[in-house]
C-alpha cells in the first residue's frame, strides 16, 4: 500500500458524505434496479468523467481492496488511468489491470469478458440512469411510471423499431428488467454485455454523478433484456475475429487504420486480449 496524499481523508470524501452514500447503496441493494437520489458531491474532475462511479467506489473502498478501472474495456485509456491514479493518491490502494486480481472494478461502458466472482464488486459509471428519459422527460412522471411498473412506453418504442426497421435498433444501453420489477438502464454497455448481468456472481453497483442517482443489482438476480416472443433479444457482435488474439467470442472494437477504408477489429477488453496473446506466445 502506498502512502496516501496528506491532507485528504481516506478515499477523498468526508465521512458524512460516505455515510450518506453507504445508506443509499444499501437501500439500492434492497430494492434491485430502483434508482435512488443521493447528494452527489463535486469531484475533482468534470461530470461525464465518471463522478458517480468514483463516489460509489470511494464509499465502498478499503485499504485491503485492489482496484481495476476500465474505460470501454481498456485499462490504458486516459479516463481509466486518471481514476486509478486518483485512488492511488487519495487512498493508497493497490491497483491492477488484471480482472482476476481486482476486488473492485470500476467500469465505463463495458463488462469484462472474464466471468466475475462472488468476492468482486462491479461499479458502473452511468451518464443517464433513467431508461425512460428519452420517452418521458419529466422526472416526476418517470418516478410515477416506475412506481406503477408502467413500462408500456418502452415496449412501444422497441415495437416501433421492429415496425420500421424489422429489428430492435438499440446496440447499447439496451433496457433490462431487474428481478421482474424495475425497468433499468444498464448504462451504455453494448447489448452484447447484457446477458452477463443476468445472475452475475458479483454485486453490481451503478453511480450517476450528474443525475445524482445510485442503483444496484444484487448477485444472482434475474436481469432480462426487454424483447418480444417473436423478436427475441439478440446480443450483437461484429462477425470478425480479433486481429491480435483471434477471439471469436469477445466484443470487438473497429479500428480505422488509414484513410482508404482500411480497418481492423480488436478486442475491446484489453486484459482479456493481452492474456490470450501472452498465452499464445508462450505456446509457440
Amino acid at each position: 500500500m502506498n502512502a496516501p496524499l496528506a491532507g485528504y481523508n481516506f478515499a477523498y470524501l468526508d465521512e458524512a458524505t460516505k455515510r450518506m452514500l453507504r445508506r443509499t447503496i444499501l437501500k439500492a441493494v434492497a430494492v434491485p434496479g430502483h434508482q435512488i437520489p443521493f447528494g452527489a458531491r463535486e469531484m475533482p474532475l468534470p461530470y461525464g468523467w465518471g463522478t458517480g462511479g468514483i463516489q460509489v467506489t470511494a464509499a465502498i473502498l478499503g485499504p485491503a481492496d485492489t482496484l481495476k478501472v476500465i474505460d470501454q474495456g481498456a485499462d490504458d485509456t486516459t479516463n481509466a488511468i486518471s481514476i486509478r491514479r486518483f485512488f492511488t493518491r487519495v487512498a493508497g490502494v493497490a491497483t491492477t489491470e488484471r480482472t482476476e486480481e481486482a476486488t473492485i472494478i470500476q467500469t465505463r461502458h463495458r463488462i469484462p469478458e472474464a466471468a466475475l466472482r462472488e468476492d468482486q464488486i462491479l461499479v458502473y459509471q452511468v451518464p443517464q440512469p433513467e431508461p425512460l428519459s428519452k420517452l418521458e422527460p419529466r422526472r416526476a412522471e418517470t418516478k410515477r411510471l416506475h412506481a406503477l411498473a408502467d413500462y408500456g412506453l418502452m415496449h412501444v418504442r422497441l415495437y416501433e423499431d421492429i415496425a420500421r426497421l424489422g429489428h430492435i435498433a438499440k446496440a447499447y444501453d439496451y433496457p433490462v428488467m431487474v428481478n421482474g420489477r424495475y425497468l433499468m438502464s444498464p448504462s451504455p454497455i453494448p447489448a452484447f454485455d447484457n446477458p452477463k448481468m443476468h445472475r452475475m456472481a458479483a454485486l453490481q453497483l451503478f453511480g450517476a454523478g450528474r443525475e445524482k442517482r445510485i442503483y444496484a443489482i444484487p448477485p444472482y438476480t434475474e436481469v432480462r433484456s426487454l424483447d418480444f416472443e417473436d423478436h427475441p433479444f439478440r446480443p450483437i457482435r461484429a462477425p470478425q475475429a480479433c486481429a491480435l488474439c483471434g477471439s471469436r467470442e469477445s466484443y470487438l472494437d473497429e479500428v480505422i487504420t488509414d484513410d482508404r477504408g482500411g480497418r481492423v477489429f480488436v478486442c475491446s477488453d484489453t486484459d482479456y486480449c493481452g492474456t490470450r496473446v501472452a498465452a499464445q506466445k508462450g505456446v509457440a
Binding site: 460516505k18 444499501l26 454485486l203
Partner: peptide, 13 residues
C-alpha cells in the same frame, strides 16, 4: 466504519 459497512453490504447482498 468502512470495514463495518462492507460487512453490512456483503450481508445485504
Amino acid at each position: 466504519a468502512q470495514a463495518a459497512f462492507r460487512a453490512v453490504l456483503d450481508a445485504m447482498s
